[in-house]
Structure formats: C-alpha cells, structure tokens
C-alpha cells in the first residue's frame, strides 16, 4: 500500500491548486441556487395574484417544498431586497418584485416556445425543461431568444408572453356563455377557481388551445363540439372557459381537406393550411421551399416503409417526413 502515499500527496497538491477555483465555483453554484429559490417564490406570488388571491407563507412553503424555518428566512431575505411585503400573513409583490417575476415568466414562456417550436419536444415535457432553463439567462440573453423566435406573443399553451416592459399582450376573449353559436373559437383561458368548476371542465376533457364551437345553448346547458367530441356544460361552469376568435392561420377546415401525408401518390392537392402548431425552423423551411397556402403539391414517390415521401412543389422535388406532412392540410384538386 506504499504506492498510496504519492497518490495522496499528488491529490493534496491538486486540491490546493484548485482550491480557489473550487471555492469560486461553489459560490457561483450557491448564488444560482438562491436565484432559483427567489425566482420560484416570485413566480408563485405572481401566479396567486393572477388568480386574484394572495400568497401566504404556508402556500409558499408548499409550492417550493421548503420547511417553515426556511420559508421564513426566504421571506425575510426577499423583504430586505424590496421584492415583497408581508402583511397580516399575506405576501404582496412590490413593483420591483412584480417586474422581476414577470421577467421570469417571460423567460419560462419563451423557453417553452423554443422547446416546442425549434427542438420539437412533446408538449407534455416542455414545462419541466423550461422550468430548468428559466433561471439561467441574463436579460440580454432573454431578448436574443425572443428575437430568434420571431417575437412570439403566446406560449404553446396559449398563455401570453410578457414583453420586455412586463406588458402582457391581451387577446380579446370572452366567456363561452357569451360566444356566438357556431362560430369557431380557441380556448385561451380556463379559470382554475373555484376548484370544483375547474375539475368539471377538466373532467369533461376541455383543454387550453382547443378549437371549439357552441352547437346549442339552453338555460340548463351548453353543447359544444371540437369537431370530434361533444361536451355538455352547465352555463355557470362554461362561464369559466374563455375563448377568442381564430387567427387567419388557425381557421379550421372541414369537408374534403386532408393532411398532405394522406394525399394519394400522383394526386395533386392545394395547400389550404399549415398547422399553427408547426412553428419555428420547420415552418420557416417549408415556407422558404414554397409550401405556402395556395401552392400545388403532388406526392411523387415514397420509400417502402411509407415515409419520407417526395412531393413536387413549384417544379422541385422535396422530401418530407410523415409528421411534417401531417401538419399540412391540402384539398385534392379534381382532375379533368
């Protein structure tokens, strides 16, 4: 075991050499931890305020998974920094705190956009990943991210993204109960208070971002449809669901339109819509290659597994995978 001595000596020397650097990294790590804790707390407070109620030390310790003592220390620290005020067991954001909170929210929602649009990550996974990333950027980096994404106004769930000044773009919306019959609308908000109503809406299967129309309304119930399923809600409950008009790109097509991936080989079709869910790099590439609304496409060949397929678009042959072609709606052109 004599050989251990030089090894230990060497390790000791290395440790000495690295000590200052290690200490610096440890301090950076601690600062990052603190930043995450503060930012998560701010987000919790903002969230509560948006719901029209106030956060309390209890709700904060529950949301962040902290012990009581830790929560008290955190609140004291944030009060000292001028981020919140604690009054009668209620926590209130100061203007500075609200600004910071909105910035975190902004980073979070921009990251969600990035992960959904550019990294093509499934919607179910993006929240957790965005949560990990939201604390890492400086303000300038957030702005670069926003520019890169083309200044989106909503996150993939339909929630507004605050701008640099903390302003939220509002999209004219109104409760389902006031929505005209048979007009398609997109669900932009589901009020999660009172919880009973929220649970009923969730149990019915209505989701943010869904496109619905009101089929029938009686004093007892509203019948709404998303094209496939019908939902019945009591008016008092339906009032908690807000819808807004569709953007031109979100228009729903029915009848003879079908996804490009289902257009038979050698059959011509006209592009009627590119699914708004398809954003980012992929959408830009499709547009650059001439797959715009109104373009004529014809599937010309496919591999033996069925994808990718090659489509004739504006005189060129472009291969697309199935999941891309699924997002492009075409109307077959009648021949002869």
């Amino acid at each position: 075991m004599e050989w251990l001595i030089p090894v230990v000596l060497l390790a000791g020397l290395l440790a000495l050499a690295l000590r200052s650097r290690l200490a610096a990294s440890y301090r950076a790590w601690r600062a990052q931890q603190e930043r995450e804790q503060v930012e998560d707390a701010l987000k919790h407070l903002l969230n509560r305020e948006h719901q029209g109620r106030h956060a309390s030390p209890e709700s904060l310790s529950g949301a962040l998974g902290l012990s009581r003592a830790q929560t008290v220390r955190l609140i004291e620290r944030m009060e000292a920094q001028g981020l919140l005020q604690s009054r009668a067991e209620q926590l209130h954001l100061t203007p500075a705190g609200e600004r910071w909170a909105l910035n975190v929210l902004r980073a979070h929602r921009l990251w969600e956009r990035y992960l959904a649009d550019e990294a093509r990550m499934p919607l179910a996974q993006i929240h957790a990943e965005a949560h990990r990333r939201e604390h890492t950027l400086s303000e300038a980096e957030v702005e670069a991210l926003e520019a890169n994404l083309g200044y989106p106004q909503q996150d993939p769930h339909g929630d507004p993204i605050p701008d640099r000044a903390g302003e939220m773009p509002s999209r004219a919306s109104c409760p389902l109960t006031d929505w005209p019959t048979d007009e398609p609308g997109r669900i932009v908000h589901i009020e999660d208070e009172p919880a009973v109503a929220y649970q009923q809406i969730a149990a019915a299967g209505l989701k943010l971002g869904q496109t619905v129309r009101v089929l029938e309304r009686t004093p007892q119930r509203l019948t709404i449809s998303d094209g496939e399923n019908e939902y019945r809600l009591a008016p008092a409950i339906a009032a908690n669901v807000s819808v807004s008009p569709l953007l031109p790109t979100e228009r729903v097509f029915d009848g003879d339109a079908l996804p490009l991936s289902k257009l038979p080989l050698h059959r011509e079709g006209e592009v009627v819509q590119i699914d708004p869910a398809l954003q980012g790099l992929t959408r830009r590439r499709l547009l650059d290659l001439g797959l715009t609304v109104g373009a004529t496409v014809r599937p010309e060949m496919q591999t033996f597994v069925g994808e990718p397929r090659a489509y004739r678009v504006r005189g060129t042959l472009i291969a697309l995978r199935k999941e891309q072609a699924d997002h492009i709606l075409v109307r077959p052109i009648a021949h002869y």
């Binding site: 093509r120 990943e129 790099l281 290659l289 042959l317 291969a319 697309l320």
Partner: peptide
C-alpha cells in the same frame, strides 16, 4: 442534444 433545434428538409435535385 434534446434541446437543440431540429427540422427535416431534403431536396431531391434533378
């Protein structure tokens, strides 16, 4: 590489 941007396009030139 989970979070890197991704898209598929392939042109088949004449």
């Amino acid at each position: 590489l989970r979070g890197e941007a991704s898209a598929f396009t392939l042109e088949l030139p004449p």
